[in-house]
Design a protein around this nucleic acid. Structure first.
Lengths: 109, 109
DNA sequence: GAGAGTTGCTACGGTATCGGTAGCAACTGG
DNA sequence: CCAGTTGCTACCGATACCGTAGCAACTCTC
């Protein structure tokens, strides 16, 4: 199995609206960060962990499992973890946040 | 005070990069959802709570406090909570996710 | 000015999630 | 055989979260 515990399918998506699924998925600790760190290329489990400030492997594995189940991340043997086509597309959306973040950080003291 | 407990300033932003601050802020439960729900206009505390599936008021208040401190959300007396100019800008970035979410939801079963 | 209805917000206790460390099985290269 | 990877799990203490109840302040209406 691929870690398909499916903690709760999707946490609180009573509406069924896709955006809720997505917001729910992304609103978990380290999920956004993982996508961000994988933007430039594949990383091994441990390398990814290092990039994420040595997050607990159990949590990292849980997040990876969710992202794999969502079809956003994939494990390719020998290459480590990488974004899928969907993951890449989402990553590009998130990269728009980077520009905003810089402008935003400048204004708040 | 405005709920300025500042749980940890920013969770794990050892790098100081603005994007990390932002990802950290957005990677908390309900934060993305709150921004999303406020996109169309102001909402009172309780209305916002209803939109967020009756999230615990303590958590909602914590998230609001963080968003206010970040200058993304504002409380205008008599009007309820609303996005600031920065919040609106960020909200627009997030709205790009909505289109992605629909396409993405279609592919996964 | 008493009551009902708002508002934003807090306190409390139980529970789920997260964090930190240790370590396993499998594989690779000597 | 041994050292060094890899992905991943188990355990358990710490923290964030949830659910309910309720408060003070304000606005109505009568």
């Amino acid at each position: 199995m691929v870690a398909s515990k499916s903690p709760r399918a999707v946490r609180g998506s009573t509406t069924g609206r896709p955006i809720m699924l997505l917001l729910d998925l992304l609103g978990r600790r380290w999920t956004l960060r993982i996508l961000y760190e994988l933007r430039a290329g594949s990383l091994t489990f441990r390398a990814l962990r290092s990039r994420c400030e040595e997050v607990s492997p159990s949590v990292l594995n849980a997040r990876i499992g969710e992202l794999r189940e969502a079809g956003l991340v994939d494990l390719q043997s020998g290459e480590g973890y990488a974004l899928t086509a969907w993951g890449t597309e989402l990553g590009e959306e998130l990269m728009a946040l980077d520009g905003f973040a810089r402008r935003w950080a400048r204004r708040r003291s």
